[in-house]
């Protein structure tokens, strides 16, 4: 085999690139699609991409939770919100408004700052994994009810408040 000027990408890198392309394309559809329902579909694609990135990083549990919560619940909720409003559902809405120029500048700057941070941080080299597969999930479970038991119960309170808020928001007053 002739020598290549660069090392061949590993399978993982190839798959990561595909997932990255899917995520970015999905995100672009969210921003650029004139139809809000198509934006919601783009959002789903981007969520799937994010789940794929988690799985490649061996965080299977987070990846699956991502699909379960973001695709299963959040996007459905967003779609509902779109469908409940007549004007948004059919017909094109312009993806731009008066502030799109400013927004574009600000997001580009944020992006540059993020790139700067990511490339300047000395990331620790990958050593031995702390735990693997099944142990990761079990460790997470132990952490919830031992070290982090107070935040965990506060989270339950937060969810309770959210439930109460949901009633106030969405109830039809008769």
């Amino acid at each position: 085999m002739p020598e290549l000027p660069f090392p061949l990408p590993t399978v993982q890198q190839v798959i990561f690139s595909m997932i990255a392309v899917l995520t970015v394309l999905g995100a672009l559809v969210v921003v650029l699609a004139p139809n809000l329902f198509h934006s919601a579909l783009g959002l789903v694609a981007a969520f799937f991409g994010a789940a794929g990135v988690y799985i490649i990083a061996e965080a299977e549990f987070i990846g699956v939770s991502q699909v379960l919560i973001y695709v299963g619940a959040i996007s459905t909720l967003i779609t509902f919100a779109i469908m409940l409003t007549r004007g948004m559902m059919f017909g094109a809405t312009s993806p731009r408004n008066r502030q799109w120029g400013t927004a574009a500048i600000i997001t580009s700057l944020t992006f540059l700052v993020l790139v700067g941070i990511v490339s300047s941080v000395p990331w620790p080299a990958v050593g031995e994994p702390i735990s693997q597969g099944h142990e990761i999930i079990a460790g997470l479970g132990r952490a919830f009810v031992n070290e982090y038991v107070v935040p965990f119960l506060l989270l339950a309170m937060l969810l309770l408040v959210a439930l109460a808020g949901a009633i106030v928001l969405a109830r039809d007053y008769k």
């Binding site: 919560i69 619940a73 999930i137 479970g141 132990r142 965990f152 928001l169």
Partner: peptide, 22 residues
Amino acid sequence: LIGLIFLIFDVEVIFLFPIAVA
């Protein structure tokens, strides 16, 4: 409203699974 309630319970169930494994 059902969507909202579902979302909250979904998050709850997600938290219960690691506890069940451990």
